[in-house]
Design a protein around this nucleic acid. Structure first.
Lengths: 226, 226, 226, 226
DNA sequence: AATGAATGAGCTTTCATTCAT
DNA sequence: TATGAATGAAAGCTCATTCAT
């Protein structure tokens, strides 16, 4: 019964109900535009219908209800969220360079119009759909943190860094990298995306501060107890 | 049903429509309970009416509509948000102690159940009511930042700190102080408020890192490259 | 708060929400017309709204949902269903006359257009609203039966009738009285109400048959055992 | 999903659209299960489709719409409704025995769960599909009545019974036989099928009453006045 | 000035029916 | 001929807002 589309546009033959990935994406694209423009509550299924160019019934074949549609949309969007940052981290030639690349990619992505918008919507429904908010940055724990922590762990093991609590250190670096943008963008006090050069400057400061504290050496970083 | 106790009713005669500050607060108190419990969309004016113990019409005399009621509520709540943190900053006997007190107070308050809830609600309507989100932490720019920046400026002027960009440095310290809590609480990956001892440890690390980088000395902290 | 209407049209002052009996009846009247014309499923709340001359919201203040509205309607209608038959029974000068009056009233009422229509609708939703169907003829058991049984019991006690099972006998008389009409009207093979003269003839036969079998005398009626 | 076993499929080549009686029955079987379980309105064509193991389109080739499908279903079911009762009547060795067999069979069948369910559904749509309800018990007039009336006519002709109005007498006997069950089962005041022994007792009373009134003899039963 | 009953647009969701494949 | 994905009208119900009292 299920004959999956072989290329991209529903090619030939039929697909099982609710199984055509092209139509599914078409719906998600329409939903994305609506949710982004209006938020979760204000986006009506009617409008999504129109925007996606499918009928009401079709949407309900692919997605059980509005919440499920939203959850699936976020799921789809999430996957690519931290890809660039992750690869930047692994590509870095030195620790400082790796952190710089990671921090810039992360700060840029997290403060992009789209992601900011998405974060707001997700937080707006966090009470009703807690798992959506919880997994917004990827499978728990906050995956950017997990990745960076893994990286830091490896450098600590190699003796290149001295960090008593790599989970905290990872969070610290991320917060330092996004110090100028995250809250400002989320709460709207910064209305434009920050220029790359400026982001780079902020991350440079973050790297410098981080390395000054955690860089291996006699004075070794401290995170709390001594 | 809920009637205000005799003595708290506007004292003498009648007040101009929509002018009685006691009734105004009574409405805002009810609205606060509803919005916090249900969120902006789910809180119905009917429920607010009941919770506040006033009639529908009265609410509409004091507040033009649901949005305006919400805006006014956030405005009222905001003022006290950073009071403790601010006074902790000014009470500190040393820079490190001042920062420690400020950081702990800030991290604690920002990750309290109430404030987390409020942030989510505010962010959920940020697209529709941008100025509410924008001014959530106080008059622009982000007021915790402004206060801390002022403090840092004074210490720089006194030669106790070396900071090229005190705005950035203020943000950095705040982000470091809330590194373990802010995102986790907001996105729900941390479901309980963090124990005070743990908050203190995190802030100690923040202070150490901050002072290591910006503490006055030959190597003076840098925030860009030179 | 609740100031009940003193006469018939909402007289003066306000009534508590969902408490105005005049408006309540107005809604039930509109609902009655719609349900009778279209049946339960086909009657839309919109149409009832229009027919009753009230707004959607008002209906939902008085009745929680469509089912509840229907239940309340049937409840209201039911009360008068067997009044006439009951009083005819008690007015009869002889047993035969009492039974004749009761039978004619019952057969007439049960086969009237309105009652037939109502029975169909009630039976149509019987699976979903069993208690509505169950109590259609009044509080259990089938109240016409209960009343007649009580009457028969008294006559048996007085020695005027010999009936081993008065519950069965009551049902038998009722079925005999409505033998020509009940099923025919309900299932639509008889499309007009039966002329009174004809009903009277059928009930006369019922009375004759009943008295021949149960009338006190040496041969005494039998209903089952040897 | 449900596929008919090879051998039951239309035997040779193709059948004209909507002409294969095997497929037709297959559809009606599925529809029967759905309608009985859910009632007319609640049974969706989708569910019938699944239950019958045919496609939506196919159903619409065989039956113009949902109503027509229902009509045809009732038509098919109807034929067997009174078979047993009819043969019991003709097998009876005496009039009393014939009536007893007929009455018990009829009362049992009419109050069986399935038939009660079917009657309710049919009555629920009686206003919209009058002919379905009208012909529920067979071709007009009420066929159980017609058959019994024929039987009574023959006995009257033979001088074994004295009945002025055999149509009425037939109805009377049927109502007496089902006096304890019909309304109670239909309106749900009796939730279980009645035990056979009890049905037999009720029918015995019906036969006794009937024979006492219509049994040939000097006093000959009368159904009108003289 | 305060009340709260009434309003009705608008919401999400269902499902009989169609028609391209 | 048979299929079942797609359609879209219409359903029950909610709730911000109004205005007669």
């Amino acid at each position: 019964m299920v004959r999956v589309a072989e290329e991209s546009v529903s090619p030939r033959g039929r697909t099982a109900a609710g199984q055509d990935p092209v139509k599914r994406d078409q719906i998600l694209d329409g939903a994305r535009r609506c949710f982004m423009r209006l938020g979760f509550e204000a986006a009506s299924m009617n409008e999504i219908t129109t925007e996606a160019g499918v009928s009401k019934g079709t949407i309900y074949v692919y997605f059980a209800n509005k919440e499920e549609l939203f959850v699936q949309l976020i799921e789809r969007e999430r996957s690519s969220l931290l890809d660039t940052a992750t690869s930047r981290l692994l590509e870095g030639e030195s620790i400082a360079a790796a952190l710089q690349g990671f921090g810039v990619a992360l700060a840029t992505r997290l403060s992009s119009d789209d992601v900011v918008r998405a974060q707001r919507i997700v937080l707006g429904v966090a009470e009703r759909l807690p798992q959506v908010a919880r997994s917004f940055f990827g499978p728990e724990p906050f995956s950017g943190v997990a990745i960076l922590q893994g990286y830091l762990d490896s450098k600590v093991a190699a003796g290149a860094l001295t960090i008593p609590d790599t989970d905290l250190a990872a969070r610290q670096f991320i917060e330092l990298s996004t110090a100028a943008t995250f809250k400002r963008r989320l709460f709207g006090t910064m209305t434009q995306e920050m220029p790359v050069a400026e982001v780079e400057r902020v991350v440079e400061s973050a790297v410098a501060m981080f390395m000054a504290f955690y860089g291996a050496g006699p004075q070794g970083g401290r995170s709390g107890s001594d």
